[in-house]
Write a protein that binds this DNA or RNA. Sequence first.
DNA 1: CGAGCTGTACGAGTTTGATCGTACTGCATG
DNA 2: CATGCAGTACGATCAAACTCGTACAGCTCG
Lengths: 125, 125
Amino acid sequence: MTTARPAPVFTVPPEPAGTPDPLPEPDVADLRLETVLGALSDPLRLRIVRRLLLESEAFDHPCGWFGLDRPKSSLTHHFKALREAGVTRQRQYGLERRSQVRVADLEARFPGLLALVADWTPASG
Amino acid sequence: MTTARPAPVFTVPPEPAGTPDPLPEPDVADLRLETVLGALSDPLRLRIVRRLLLESEAFDHPCGWFGLDRPKSSLTHHFKALREAGVTRQRQYGLERRSQVRVADLEARFPGLLALVADWTPASG
DNA sequence: CGAGCTGTACGAGTTTGATCGTACTGCATG
DNA sequence: CATGCAGTACGATCAAACTCGTACAGCTCG
């Protein structure tokens, strides 16, 4: 029995109707701790996930919403890494590809992990 | 807000007197989430930490105690990575160098993380 | 002291991943 | 249909890390 979860208060996506299908992603049962931890062991990706957790008043967010001064190809790389590890879900909205954290899935498999990410503070600030 | 944890019952080391000084390790305040997650994003190291957490009836354990069929130099590499990330503490007992998980330090900085490691199951078994 | 043991140091080979430029696809809007 | 935009794909480059063999250090015990 995994420890009973106190249900952290992250912004749970309301999932409105007429939503595009998610891009390919691992199933909840296939989430691997080592893979998820590997995806989160990068400051940039940690920053992305943390911002999604803390400032995600809307449903999900396009890549440009994060103020990351990196070339687009670098961002693609990191967002893809997060999605393939199962940390985020991405949907195509016309032009944009928006991301959200798979809060329910991650809490179910690795309870408490997202709280650590939310509490994280970058090294240079 | 870190979710209030139900205080997992790991074996807390009794710290007997006359213990050798620990090898160099990062201070609790210097523990970085991304570094710790990086150290734990490896199946072999995850297995090491998990065994230390679950079967650590004694105080700490030498490298040979784990049944890892890797060359010694590889094991040195991984144990050093864990210690330098702040996950484990190592002490020199005569011939042996014994390891323990820094349970109190990790729980203080990243509450709940060790519970995830304890719940982890290797991919091939 | 000399043998044997635990573990390290060092270095080479290999792999993985980060970074980023350039060229491209696909949608939208006029 | 032409322009512009969000994001991808591909490939090159570079840095880090894994793996492991060999040689060595340090302790212990006969």
